[in-house]
Design a binder for these strands. Structure first.
Length: 600
RNA sequence: GGCUCCGUAGCUUAAUUGGAUAGAGUACUUGACUACGGAUCAAGAGGUUCCAGGUUCGAGUCCUGGCGGAGUCACCA
């Protein structure tokens, strides 16, 4: 543009797209943006630019102009040499270190119950986001904050103490985190019973008469009154709150019970994480961090970033950021969730010095993180601009919203067992694995089942709320994880059968099929795709890319013979192409935490 | 009620961030293995991209106003 029209133009102002299938070419330049500076018609500009590019860039063989779109045709020789250069590189697509650090926080469970479907989406997103950043050149640190204190775990503790009769996971034959969750649900059940009885008691009726709004029926009133009842009237609620106070005071018996219960939960979590194939570099425990942040509040107060009310509580005024006023310290001087998060952010920066910190947390906390990040900015934290909330939509069931207190959750362990069971049934029907040992079969079947589950969840853009249909999640045909695995397995099978082959023969193959070119062009796009997915915090882009690549390969495989190709050159070229594609598929899926088996 | 997000084929979804005739999967109908793996491929049908305006050479995408759904607006976390 500069050469032809004498005006410089920023690179990001040039739209360069992959050419759509129905037109000839590989890349398309949209020329409309140049009409003003060139003062010519789009078609004329297209002709001029095309002529210039063909002359100036050896890789561009020819061009055509259609309705203001300049389609550029890349020389087959370029694609062939590109393939030759990269096909054997199993780490193709991975960028060299960019010297930057990123911390990803995900999972972050409460310790009062086992992990469920919501955690699975969180974990898969967090894991994939970390891996994608790593491939994009970042040094990564995967962390979780374990919410091991608070009223929730006290409920489980209290229920076990009152109704548990010294039971253990072993004595009840339960997975240990499920065991603790069982007592959490039991607490809720007992509490509900107590609440129901109280509602019809004289005291309950009196309060209803006194406090209910006009026309409000008792069901609606008592639904809204539940928290107040728990905090002010319930004997169970009082006992749980008393236990929390005892915990904070360091009461030996309570601490011992707390350690016992949490120990059970951690043992259970460990199994679930292992089954899911994830691990963390560092764990933060809320019991160690929940008092952090007060110093910062003090300092911010003297710097007049915060202000104090008469009752002693400390606030920040964020009205000019359309975020209202927010409490950061209670009137009794104790901290709130926000205080803690401020302190934890600082602690992590001290620990790791990451310029980017990604919080993988459900979208119900969008407001919280907006406020947190705004506060960090006003406090002048050097990393404030690198804070990012990877917000994702909640997972619904076809029957509606999941509620752990009501026991309508899909348990993570059960879910994995289910998809693996489905994979096993499918596999046994096919019988492809019958020659392998039982241990090998089990491992492959596990990989297939998990691929179905993980791909089903990751392929949806994070911010979209998703409905999880258990029936569809175990599908293994169509746009699924096993479909992608199958493309890989096919390639591995072909490569095994090919035995020794000579890559140099590929040089004699000079006239590429359209689909061969398409595949190379897609492979070519992989490194940039990784960077884009990291920038967008969007693992679904990688999932969809892998699916499209697998689809291309299945079609190619169907239409063109590889081992029985017409010439030795074509055979070598196609083996090269297959190898390259298998490497990309394996790497791409690896970024999503999905393994690729050799057989299935 | 304020703020934020979402709305695309019956269902699940994509669209290179404003580009060409909105692309897949599923379900439905139909066809392809004596084959390098049929967990595959191909064909058909399925769309007023929630509605109405606006900006633009060009809008599923941006702006305004509606409609529908979700979240949030705690001295809970």
């Amino acid at each position: 543009v500069e050469q032809l029209y004498g005006q410089a133009i920023a690179a990001d102002k040039v739209t360069l797209n992959e050419t759509r299938k129905e037109f000839e070419g590989d890349f398309t330049v949209v020329v409309f943006p140049f009409t003003k500076m060139a003062r010519k018609k789009p078609d004329v500009i297209g002709e001029e630019l095309g002529t210039y590019l063909v002359g100036a860039v050896t890789e561009i063989k020819s061009f055509n102009v259609i309705k203001g779109f300049l389609n550029l045709v890349i020389d087959d020789a370029y694609w062939a040499s590109f393939l030759k250069e990269h096909y054997a590189n199993v780490h193709y697509g991975v960028h060299p270190s960019n010297g930057r650090k990123v911390m990803v926080e995900f999972s972050s469970p409460n310790t009062n119950k086992p992990l469920h479907l919501g955690h699975i989406r969180n974990i898969l997103l967090g894991w994939a986001t970390a891996k994608i950043h790593e491939a994009a050149g970042y040094e990564i640190q995967k962390v979780q904050i374990i919410n091991d204190r608070g009223i929730a775990i006290c409920k489980s503790m209290l229920a076990w103490e009152r109704f548990g009769e010294e039971a253990t996971p072993e004595s009840l034959g339960m997975k240990s985190d499920h065991f603790v969750g069982h007592f959490y649900v039991l607490f809720e059940k007992k509490f509900q019973e107590e609440y129901k009885a109280w509602q019809v008691s004289p005291e309950g009726q009196e309060l209803f008469a006194e406090k209910a709004k006009k026309g409000q029926d008792d069901t609606a009133f008592f639904k809204g009154f539940k928290n107040t009842y728990f905090n002010e009237f319930s004997t169970l609620g009082k006992a749980a709150k008393a236990m929390l106070l005892q915990w904070e005071a360091g009461d030996e018996a309570v601490i011992a019970l707390w350690k016992k219960m949490n120990g059970w939960v951690y043992a259970g979590f460990e199994v679930t994480y292992k089954d899911l194939g994830v691990e963390f570099d560092k764990l933060y425990y809320e019991s160690n961090t929940y008092l952090l942040g007060k110093d910062t509040i003090e300092k911010g107060l003297s710097d007049q970033i915060f202000y104090q009310k008469e009752d002693g509580s400390v606030w920040i005024d964020l009205e000019d950021a359309k975020l209202d006023h927010k409490l950061v310290l209670r009137s009794d001087g104790t901290s709130v969730y926000m205080t803690q998060d401020i302190g934890t952010a600082e602690l992590r920066y001290q620990d790791f010095g990451a310029e980017k910190m990604i919080y993988v947390v459900a979208d119900e906390q969008n407001y919280h993180f907006k406020v947190l990040f705004e506060i960090m900015k006003r406090l002048g934290a050097p990393y404030a601009d690198g804070l990012h909330h990877l917000s994702y939509g909640m997972v619904d069931l076809p029957s509606g919203k999941m509620k752990s207190r009501e026991g309508t959750v899909v348990d993570a362990d059960d879910l994995m067992a289910e998809v693996i069971g489905e994979a096993r049934a499918n596999s046994e029907e096919r019988g492809e694995l019958s020659e392998l040992t039982t241990a090998e079969q089990t491992e492959i079947i596990r990989a297939i089942g998990l691929a179905a589950l993980k791909f089903f969840i990751i392929k949806v853009q994070p911010k979209k709320r998703m409905t999880f249909d258990p029936k569809e999640s175990v599908d293994m045909q169509g746009q699924t994880g096993p479909y992608v695995q199958n493309a890989y397995v096919r390639i591995r099978s072909v490569l095994r059968k090919a035995g020794e082959w000579n890559p140099a023969l590929a040089d004699t193959y000079t006239s590429l099929e359209t689909i061969e070119k398409d595949i190379i062009a897609q492979i070519y796009a992989f490194p940039a795709l990784i960077v884009q997915a990291a920038e967008d915090y969007d693992p679904s882009a990688v999932a969809n890319y892998c699916y499209n690549l697998a689809k291309l390969y299945h079609k190619f495989y169907h239409d063109h013979s590889i081992l029985k190709a017409d010439t030795e050159g074509a055979k070598a070229f196609r083996l090269m192409l297959s190898t390259a594609l298998s490497n990309v598929l394996r790497k791409g899926m690896e970024l999503l935490g999905i393994e690729m088996p050799e057989k299935m």
